[in-house]
Amino acid sequence: MNDTIVEARNLIKHYKDLNALDNVNLSLSANRIYGLLGRNGAGKTTLMSILTAQAFATSGEALVFGASAYENDAVLSRICFIRESQKYPDDFQPRHAFRSAALFYKNWDQDFADRLAEDFQLPVKRRIKKLSRGQLSAVGVIIGLASRAELTFFDEPYLGLDAVARQLFYDRLVEDYAEHPRTIILSSHLIDEVANLLEHVVVIDRGRIIMDADAEDIRGSAVTVSGSADKVDAFLAGRKILHRETLGSLASVTVDEALSSRERNEALELGLELSPVSLQQLVVRKTMAGFGTTSTTGDFADDTLEARR
C-alpha cells in the first residue's frame, strides 16, 4: 500500500532573481490524498511542474514511479497534471478536450466525465475560449477526475468556481477516490475547505517545505490559550509560541504543542480558555513565523480572532 511513488531529492529551481524551489526533499506514497498547501507563489506549481517533467529543475532529482518522467512514456502515461492556467487548442470545445484525454488515459471513464459535465453545468459544445473562468476550471477538474490516473495533480482547481461547485468537486473527489484509490495531490490555498479531505499535508513556503505530516497528527497538535495576559504567559512559559495577540489586558497565544489532559484541567482551573487551531490557522501562523514580524496576512483568510467554542 505504502510504496513510495514520488521522490524529490534536493530539488532546486532558480529563476533570474528568485529561488522558486530551495532544496526540496519530499517522498509521497501510493493511494493517498495529499494537500500541497502554501501561498500564491510559494512554489507549488513549480514543484508539480518539475515532478511531471513539464518544467526542469536547476539541480536535484525528481523520480516518479521510480524514474524521471522526462520523455518517459511509461511514467507519463500514469500521470495527469492539468494546470490552473491550462491552455487548450484554439478550436476546441470541452467535449473535444475530453475525447483527447480518452486517447491517452487507459482508465478514462467517459460516463463519469459526462455526469460531471452535467453536474457542473458545463456547456460541452461551446468553444473553450468562450468559457467563463469557472467553466474553464471545471474542464480541468473533469479531466483530472475522469482520467483516473494513478498520480493526479489538481492545481488550485477551484478558481472561478462558486461555493456550490467547489463542494461538488470535493464530494465527487472523495466518492471517486473511495471507489478507485489513487494518489491525489491537491494544491490549494483554501485550506479550510480541503482540510478534512487530506490524509497528508505538505506546506511549502518560499520554495521550502515547512511542514510534512499526516493530517491527523496535525489536528490538535497546536492550541490557542486565551485569558488574562499575565496568567496566559505564566502558564505557557517555556513553550513554543507561534503567535501572540493582545487586547488590553487579555492575551490570546497559540502554541505549537498539544496539552495533556492534566495540563488542560490546569488551564481551566486558572480560568484560561482553550480553543482548537484549524489547519488553516496553523499554516498561516507557521508561514508568518517564517517571515518574521514584518509579514502581512497574505492570501490566507485569517479567522484566528473569531471566538470558537
Binding site: 497534471f81 491552455k87 483527447s100
Partner: peptide
C-alpha cells in the same frame, strides 16, 4: 504557430512526451 503555443501546452497537460 498554434501547434506550438496552444496544442503543445495541452499535450503537456495530458502527459504526452515532447517527442510524441
Amino acid at each position: 504557430i498554434q501547434s506550438m503555443t496552444l496544442v503543445f501546452p495541452f499535450s503537456q497537460g495530458l502527459s504526452i512526451s515532447r517527442r510524441a
